[in-house]
Computed example of a mutant assay.
Amino acid sequence: MNHPHGFWAGWHDRPQQHYLIEPRYLAGAGDLRHATEFLRASGWKEKPKTGGPLVFHNPAKTVRVVFDPLTQPGGWTIESKASGYQPAWAAKFGIQTPVEIIAGLTDALTQPPTAHAPNVWAPLSQQGWNTRQGQHFTAMSPDKSAFVQFHQSSPGQAHWWIGARTEHGRAWDAEFSPTTPLSLVQAVTTALADPQPVMRPRGAFPPSNRIRTTSVSVRPSELGAWQQARLNTARTAAWARNAWATARPRGGKPATAPQVPAGYAAGRR
Rank of each mutant, 00 (worst) to 15 (best):
G156E: 07
V63Y: 08
L182S: 15
S215G: 11
A164R: 02
A171T: 04
A115L: 10
G6I: 08
I101E: 02
A103D: 09
G203N: 14
H136K: 15
A82N: 04
T138N: 10
F137Y: 05
V99Y: 02
G10R: 11
L184R: 01
P178Y: 06
D107V: 10
A255L: 09
S208R: 05
A164F: 09
M140W: 04
P69N: 13
W89K: 05
S42V: 02
P23A: 10
D68I: 03
H168R: 15
S221G: 10
P261Y: 09
W76T: 04
G263N: 01
A90I: 04
N119V: 03
A29P: 12
H151Q: 12
G203T: 12
F93R: 02
R219Q: 14
V198Y: 02
A122T: 08
W44G: 00
L231Y: 07
V99R: 00
T106M: 09
S177G: 03
L109G: 05
K47F: 04
Q149I: 00
P4I: 14
Q227H: 04
R268V: 10
V188F: 04
M199P: 04
V216G: 07
I162D: 00
A243S: 15
L109Y: 07
V198K: 01
I78P: 00
T236Q: 13
Q96N: 12
A266P: 00
G252L: 00
W129Q: 01
Q72R: 11
P249T: 11
G251T: 15
P112H: 02
P123I: 08
F137E: 02
T131A: 10
T97N: 10
P197D: 12
V63S: 03
P142G: 11
E46P: 02
V218Y: 06
P201D: 10
N119L: 01
Q196D: 11
V188E: 03
P123Y: 04
N130G: 11
L39P: 06
P118L: 14
S208V: 09
Q127Y: 07
R33F: 09
S217D: 13
A90H: 03
P220L: 06
A191P: 05
G156C: 03
V99W: 02
S154I: 01
G224K: 12
Y25P: 00
W226V: 01
T179M: 06
L32Y: 08
A90Q: 14
A262C: 00
N58Y: 01
R170C: 03
D143M: 01
T166C: 02
G251E: 03
Q186E: 15
G163S: 08
R212G: 07
P118T: 13
D173W: 06
K47D: 07
Q16T: 05
E46K: 12
G169S: 05
P118A: 14
V198Q: 00
W226Y: 07
Q227F: 07
Y85G: 11
T190A: 15
R230L: 02
E22N: 11
A255K: 11
P59K: 02
R235Q: 11
P261K: 10
T179F: 03
T213L: 14
G134W: 06
T106Q: 08
